[in-house]
C-alpha cells in the first residue's frame, strides 16, 4: 500500500481479503476447538471482536508513547502479550461483576482468547503497516469481525456436516483444516474487489 489507505478500505480488507484467520492462519486453536456450534462460536467471535479492537488501541498507545520514545521497540512482542493478558483478565473480572448475562455470553470465553495468537498478530501487523491510531482501531475491529465471520461460517458448515460420513482419519481437526483451506481459497476471490 503506497498511498495511505482509507479507513473503510482497511476495515473491508481486514474482514475479507486479508482475513486474519484465513489469509494468515492465525488464531487457529480456538477456531478448531470452538467451531462446533453456531451459538458458542458467536459468543467467542464477539469476545474476539471486542478484545481485538480494545487491545489494538491500547497497544498503539503503549508502542508510540512508551516504547518508541524509550528506544525499546524490540520489546514489543513481550510488552504486547503482557498488556493483552492483563486487559483480558481485568475485563473478565468486571464483566463477571457487572452482568450475569454478559458473563455467560461473553465472559467465559475471555480466558480462552488471552493466548489467541490472532490478537497479538493484529497488534504486530499494525506496527509493521505503520497505521495511525484510527487506522489501527479500524484494522483491529475489521480483523475481529473477519475472525468472527470465519468461525461462524465454519460452525455453520460443521453443524451441517454432523450427519455426513467423513473418513475416520479426517474426523475433527482434520476435516476442519481442509474446509478452512477451501474457505481461504474462496476468500481470496475477494482480492479482485479492492
Amino acid at each position: 500500500m503506497n498511498e495511505p489507505a482509507s479507513l473503510w478500505t482497511i476495515l473491508f480488507a481486514a474482514i475479507f481479503t486479508n482475513n486474519i484467520l484465513l489469509a494468515n492462519y492465525l488464531g487457529m486453536c480456538s477456531f478448531l476447538a470452538v467451531s462446533k456450534e453456531i451459538k458458542t462460536s458467536f459468543g467467542l467471535g464477539s469476545a474476539v471482536v471486542f478484545v481485538m479492537t480494545a487491545t489494538t488501541a491500547l497497544n498503539w498507545f503503549v508502542y508510540h508513547h512508551v516504547l518508541v520514545p524509550l528506544n525499546l521497540v524490540y520489546l514489543n512482542v513481550i510488552v504486547f502479550i503482557i498488556v493483552i493478558a492483563a486487559f483480558v483478565q481485568l475485563v473478565e473480572l468486571i464483566i463477571d461483576r457487572v452482568s450475569e448475562t454478559l458473563y455467560t455470553a461473553l465472559g467465559i470465553f475471555l480466558p480462552l482468547i488471552t493466548v489467541n495468537c490472532a490478537i497479538l498478530g493484529v497488534s504486530l501487523f499494525m506496527i509493521i503497516r505503520d497505521y495511525s491510531f484510527t487506522q489501527s482501531v479500524m484494522y483491529g475491529l475489521g480483523s475481529g469481525i473477519g475472525w468472527m465471520v470465519a468461525i461462524l461460517a465454519m460452525a455453520g458448515i460443521r453443524q451441517k456436516m454432523k450427519r455426513s460420513r467423513i473418513p475416520r482419519g479426517l474426523e475433527g481437526a482434520g476435516i476442519t483444516l481442509i474446509i478452512a483451506g477451501v474457505m481461504a481459497l474462496a476468500f481470496m476471490g475477494f482480492n479482485g474487489i479492492l
Partner: peptide, 21 residues
C-alpha cells in the same frame, strides 16, 4: 520499563481482585 509495566499491571490486577473480584 519492563519491571514498571509488569509491576504496574500486576498491582492493578491485585487491586481489581480485592475490589471488583
Amino acid at each position: 520499563v519492563m519491571t514498571a509495566l509488569s509491576g504496574g499491571l500486576a498491582l492493578l490486577m491485585v487491586i481489581a481482585d480485592a475490589t471488583i473480584g
